[in-house]
Design a protein around this nucleic acid. Structure first.
Lengths: 133, 133
DNA sequence: CCAATTTCAGCACCACTGATATGG
DNA sequence: CCCATATCAGTGGTGCTGAAATTG
């Protein structure tokens, strides 16, 4: 808990100049790494493990900032796609460069320790259904 | 981040029947383990690494629930002490028993893995000034 | 006079509930 | 008819800024 509290503080501070919170940054990254640059809101919620209404809110803010646009989902007319814009890609790349320069708040951790942490936390996430979709 | 998201969800769900959030539970535990059962708000903020106004808010809620009471600090008349009440001690003990039964959301982790996790996260916390006071 | 402690008003953000509209 | 998707209104919790009152 305390470690996350420290990390989220640093990351949000690094992202503030970009007008992003960590939650919005995560959504942008997810879109930027998707095959087509667009995902149904449902999928975003699954991957980020957040409530549907939270996804709506996050995408609203990103849309207001013109970093994503909403499009009807051709495969399911109930649904909506969030698609990252060129401006969104530019911003997420700049933000990621900044975060990488700060080593995502984990400066001082070598690869072995990072791997060890990831491996230790993995089963917790699997049990909770992360990585499921 | 994802691991904390999972854990805070489980812990808050376990604490909801007691009318506690994890933040309020942490404050109660801190008071229950202090020598006199009372601490200046300033100290609570330091230990929990939260903003002074957040401490005021947390203590307000705990006071409304009659789990703590505010007292003037005899050693520094600018300050206020939060003191845990007998009802507060009762509740925090019951809540702790419940959390321990659920292994704090870490069921499936043996002592060695828990120690490894703690050891890996320790330097991050030290660098951020946790444990400082 | 400056600094520390606490509180207050106000704002942003995230998480959730319950209800609704639309479509599979 | 039931379920899924997304949105909206509203609430609670937390984190912060800026300002104020009180005291060291």
């Amino acid at each position: 808990m305390r470690a996350q509290q420290i990390l989220i503080g640093e990351l949000d501070a690094l992202l503030r100049p970009f007008g992003l919170t960590f939650a919005r940054y995560e959504a942008l990254v997810l879109l930027s790494f998707s095959r087509t640059g667009a995902l149904p809101l449902r999928r975003i919620g699954e991957r980020l493990m957040v409530h549907p209404t939270s996804v709506t809110n996050t995408i609203n803010r990103l849309e207001q900032a013109k970093l994503v646009i909403r499009r009807p989902n051709p495969a399911d007319r109930r649904g909506t796609l969030a698609e990252i814009t060129p401006a969104g890609r530019e911003l997420v790349e700049a933000a990621t460069a900044e975060l990488m320069a700060a080593e995502f708040g984990m400066a001082g951790y070598d690869s072995a320790r990072l791997d060890a942490l990831f491996g230790l936390l993995w089963p917790l996430r699997v049990d909770a259904g992360d990585f499921a979709s």
